[in-house]
Simulated scan of single mutants.
Amino acid sequence: MRRLAALFAVLFALAAAPVVTPAAAEPIRLVVLGDSLTAGYGLPPGAGFPARLEAALKKRGRDVTVIDAGVSGDTTAGGLSRLDWSVGTDAQAVIVELGGNDMLRGTDPARTAENLNQIVARLTDRGLPVLVAGMRAPRNLGEAYGEAFDAVFATVAERHGALFYPFFLDGVAADPALNLPDGIHPNEAGVAIIVERILPAVEQLLDRVGAS
């Protein structure tokens, strides 16, 4: 009789206990630190690279929030100066898309390299996986300048063990059908191609979150 009473007491306690369910995992917070190519210059709200990238990742089953940290006209020096407040403490991965405005201003590639080195070093020191998106210089700036500038991005990525995507505007640059009338910034069709082509590299980046 006592054993039966004890059994009922245990069953009652289990029934009365609150049910604890696992907390839902928060989306990965991916920051895109960039210039007007990130900020969506000339495009309607929601049509820029970060928003389109987030939508594409979610279609592939990735629970990700893509943060737009693009500032039109920004250089690598500008990105470095605003790094700490643009990439907050809740960031979990970063795409660095900077350098185009350095090229347009004719900035010494060595200076661009030093700025990017500092940016990527500070991010990796925080334990954040980084994807460096490369840029290429048109050869009307001179063959020597173009070669030096183009090499910056791969060199920086390799130095810090970051992922590297060779050319952010791959498949879009110099195509009038994929750019705004200024011939520099992608239109909505151009952004779609950028997202499609960079997507595998971004998924590699997300796979590194929490791996270190």
Rank of each mutant, 00 (worst) to 15 (best):
P22W: 03
D207M: 15
E158Q: 14
A177E: 15
N117M: 00
V10Q: 02
T75S: 09
L53R: 14
Y41H: 10
V66S: 10
A47F: 13
G171V: 13
P129V: 07
G190Y: 07
R2S: 08
V120K: 03
L128G: 06
P50L: 00
A157Q: 04
L11W: 10
R159D: 10
V132W: 01
I119M: 04
K59W: 04
D74Y: 14
G100M: 00
A162S: 11
T89V: 12
G183S: 03
T112N: 00
I28G: 05
V191C: 05
T112F: 01
D170K: 10
R111E: 03
N179I: 06
R3T: 08
V172R: 02
N117P: 09
V94K: 10
R197S: 10
E54N: 01
G100S: 01
E158A: 14
Y165H: 07
V31A: 05
P181N: 00
A23S: 11
G34C: 08
A110N: 08
G73M: 01
S212D: 11
L53Q: 09
E158S: 13
G127P: 09
G146K: 01
R111G: 07
F149E: 03
V10Y: 06
A162R: 08
G183W: 00
N115G: 06
F153I: 01
G134Y: 04
P50Q: 00
F164G: 09
V10F: 14
I194H: 14
A173V: 10
F12W: 08
A189D: 15
L43D: 15
P181W: 01
N115M: 02
E114R: 11
V66W: 08
Q204R: 07
L30T: 00
T89G: 08
V96G: 12
V156H: 05
A55Y: 15
Y165Q: 02
V71Q: 15
I67W: 05
I193C: 14
A177V: 08
S36F: 05
V64H: 06
D68S: 05
V156K: 01
T124P: 15
L169W: 09
D170W: 05
V71R: 15
P200A: 00
P166R: 15
D108L: 00
Y41W: 15
D84N: 13
A173P: 09
L98N: 07
I193T: 12
V202T: 06
L37S: 13
G146M: 08
E26P: 04
P27W: 02
F12I: 07
V195A: 06
A192N: 09
V64Y: 05
G73C: 02
L199C: 09
V209S: 14
G190H: 12
N117W: 11
Q92T: 07
A162Y: 11
A9L: 12
A157C: 12
P176T: 06
E114L: 11
Q204S: 10
